[in-house]
Every structure is written in C-alpha cells, then in structure tokens.
Simulated scan of single mutants.
Amino acid sequence: MAMCKVWKVLGTLLVTVLGCVQCLPVDGEPLCTAGGRAKYSLIFNGKWSRLAFPKQYPLYRPPAQWSPLMVVTHSSDYHMWRIGEYASNGVREFAEKSEAWTLMREVEASGEKIQSVYGVFSAPDIPNGVEQTSTEFEVHARHSLMSFMVHIVPSPDWFVGGDSFDLCDGDKWKEQISLDLHPYDAGTDSGFTFSSPNFATIPQETITKITSSSPNHPANSFFYPRLKKLPPIAKVTLTKLKDSRLIGISAAQSNLIPMGNEIDDSVSETPLDCEVNTWSSWGLCMGKCTEMGTKHRTRYIRLNPANSGNPCPELEEEEPCVLHNCV
C-alpha cells in the first residue's frame, strides 16, 4: 500500500509538469504521421518459475517476485536506459532497490528541459515470479516511443525492460506487440547470485544483457552452460485500445491479474546439472600390515540436479596404498 501511494504522488507531480508540454513539437524530429493519440494496454506476464530457472531459485527472504513496473512514453530525445551505456542514478536505484524517486525526478527534468517526455505510468508489484500485472498508457504522434523497467527481486542490480519501442508504423498505430524479456545487468553491483549482499561495482560498468554464458562464472544465478540461450523470464503484451480518451497518470489505473488468466501459460523446463566441489586431499593409508592398505577422499554436492539434469557423480573414492608404519 505504501508503494502504491508513492507511485500515485509521483504520478501527480508529473501530470502537473508534463501536462503543459506534451503536445508541443520537437524541432527537427521526424514526426509520426499517425493521427493524434493512441491508448494501449500493457500486460506483464512473469515467467520466473523454479522449472525455468532452477539454479539458486529464491524461495524465501524474499521469495522470487517483481517490483512495480515503470513506463515512460517519450520522443527519441529521451532514453530511460540503453545497452552499452552507463545507468543513471535513477536507473541504478531502481535496478538495485526498486526505489523510483530519483528516476522520476530525472524523467521530470527531461520533460521540462527538452519536452521529450509525454507521460509516466506504472503497474503494481507482483508478489511472486509467475503472476501478471497490467496498466494502460498513452502515446502521441510526436512521442510515439515507450520504455519500461521492472526490477528482478531479489537481485543485485538485475532488471527486465524495453528501450524505446516505437508504437507508430508510418501513418498508423501498431495494433499488438508481444515481447519476450530477458535479464539485464545495470552494471552497478557485482553480486553473482540473486541473494548476494551489496557489492558496489567500482568503477561503474555499462548496462549489459545477461545470457546463459555471460557472466561466464559458475556461481552466477543465470549460468546454464548447456543452454544456447536463456528462456524468457517474462513477457509483455501491448494491445491498442479502441478508447483513446486521455487517461491520468496514476497507480490507480493499474491492476493485478490473478493466476489463471495468463495469456501464455507455457512453462519451460531448464535442466540443471549436479554440481560438486573439488576432491578433498587423500586421507591416511589405513589397513592391516599383512595386506595392502587403502586411502579415501571425498567431495560434496554444491547444487542438486533438477529437471532431468545430469545426476551427481560418486562422492567418495578410494585407492590402494602401501602401509609405511608396519614392522
């Protein structure tokens, strides 16, 4: 409830600032020739399940979930975030802690300075990895692009989102778009796992896409060397609505969709191979002086297999040895 109130207050502030500039032209920018405004629904479908992402899947403190979704409609002069560029302070705070105040102030400043932002919209957070949330938003012929972010909770600085999707197609608005979403690293925290403690990246790195082999480290929560690519961790569906009346910028416009109304309920099963640590050193040679002795070494399971992944190998090994203390 507190988070919803924060989003509502922030939205009200932006209505005041952006309401007077949203219809002004931007000099030198190619304009979409579609008529007037267009209203869209956005449905965010979480696909972050234990079957799809079994490695280190967070079950508690906190369990897998999603932050509120933040949508900005804008012109080509504005970018919320971009692969290969440094995250702003606002993007950093949102990607690390789901805190939106600084990001909203950055959006507000951009709207005032270069009239590049048309509106800001939000959808509620999702308390687990596989439910849905939705909102409605509006674009304008001069501000036909939309960008959005959702923080993966818990995670060091990982998020999903879209950068500058153009909803205008020449002289008409696109009717429907479906986007498979994959995780990104904001480049501000160096944690390897979902529940890693804060470990600031100094110097800050650029925003990168996380893949099944990058970061190339077995401790990483998304490291699945058997996969060519990760399955989508979420999906967004944008649908043009017939009713194009102006809508307000408020969290009250959003709603959480209960389980059972999924657009796409297919589930990917990602095989997870067993992982064991290295062998211990050999133990002492033991046995009777009249026979050959034996020595043992052991190793332990670091990660149990899942979804038909490779089973664990032997955890104990022995070999013959010569007893040295026999008389």
Rank of each mutant, 00 (worst) to 15 (best):
residue 227 L to N: 04
residue 37 R to T: 15
residue 41 S to V: 06
residue 2 A to F: 04
residue 133 T to C: 08
residue 34 A to E: 07
residue 192 F to T: 02
residue 248 G to E: 14
residue 293 G to K: 08
residue 234 A to C: 09
residue 111 G to M: 07
residue 123 A to Y: 02
residue 304 N to E: 15
residue 55 K to V: 00
residue 75 S to A: 11
residue 244 S to R: 13
residue 259 M to N: 15
residue 196 S to E: 00
residue 161 G to W: 01
residue 229 K to Q: 12
residue 285 C to M: 08
residue 81 W to R: 05
residue 309 G to H: 03
residue 236 V to G: 01
residue 137 F to C: 03
residue 293 G to Y: 08
residue 155 S to E: 00
residue 12 T to Y: 11
residue 255 N to C: 12
residue 295 K to N: 03
residue 74 H to R: 09
residue 6 V to A: 03
residue 271 P to W: 03
residue 194 F to W: 06
residue 313 P to S: 15
residue 263 I to E: 08
residue 171 D to A: 13
residue 95 A to T: 03
residue 307 N to Y: 06
residue 327 V to I: 11
residue 179 L to K: 12
residue 232 P to Y: 01
residue 127 P to A: 10
residue 198 N to S: 15
residue 168 C to G: 03
residue 155 S to P: 02
residue 266 S to L: 10
residue 252 A to K: 14
residue 137 F to E: 02
residue 321 C to E: 03
residue 165 F to Q: 05
residue 225 P to G: 08
residue 146 M to A: 10
residue 149 M to D: 07
residue 224 Y to P: 02
residue 13 L to A: 12
residue 198 N to T: 15
residue 69 L to D: 01
residue 309 G to P: 02
residue 35 G to P: 08
residue 191 G to V: 01
residue 182 H to C: 08
residue 235 K to M: 14
residue 88 S to H: 06
residue 256 L to A: 12
residue 173 W to I: 05
residue 285 C to L: 10
residue 72 V to Q: 05
residue 137 F to N: 01
residue 292 M to P: 03
residue 89 N to I: 13
residue 13 L to P: 02
residue 318 E to L: 05
residue 224 Y to K: 04
residue 77 D to W: 09
residue 155 S to D: 00
residue 202 I to N: 12
residue 4 C to L: 14
residue 40 Y to R: 03
residue 150 V to H: 00
residue 89 N to P: 04
residue 171 D to F: 08
residue 268 S to W: 07
residue 219 A to V: 04
residue 287 G to R: 06
residue 80 M to I: 10
residue 321 C to A: 07
residue 123 A to C: 09
residue 184 Y to Q: 10
residue 151 H to Q: 14
residue 255 N to T: 13
residue 146 M to I: 13
residue 62 P to C: 07
residue 118 Y to L: 11
residue 323 L to T: 10
residue 303 L to M: 14
residue 220 N to R: 10
residue 198 N to I: 15
residue 63 P to N: 10
residue 143 H to Y: 09
residue 311 P to W: 10
residue 134 S to N: 11
residue 255 N to S: 14
residue 148 F to Y: 15
residue 196 S to W: 01
residue 38 A to W: 03
residue 70 M to R: 04
residue 2 A to R: 04
residue 91 V to Q: 01
residue 178 S to N: 09
residue 323 L to Q: 11
residue 272 L to T: 03
residue 182 H to N: 09
residue 202 I to V: 14
residue 174 K to V: 09
residue 301 I to F: 07
residue 53 F to I: 03
residue 54 P to A: 08
residue 95 A to Q: 01
residue 69 L to K: 01
residue 157 D to T: 00
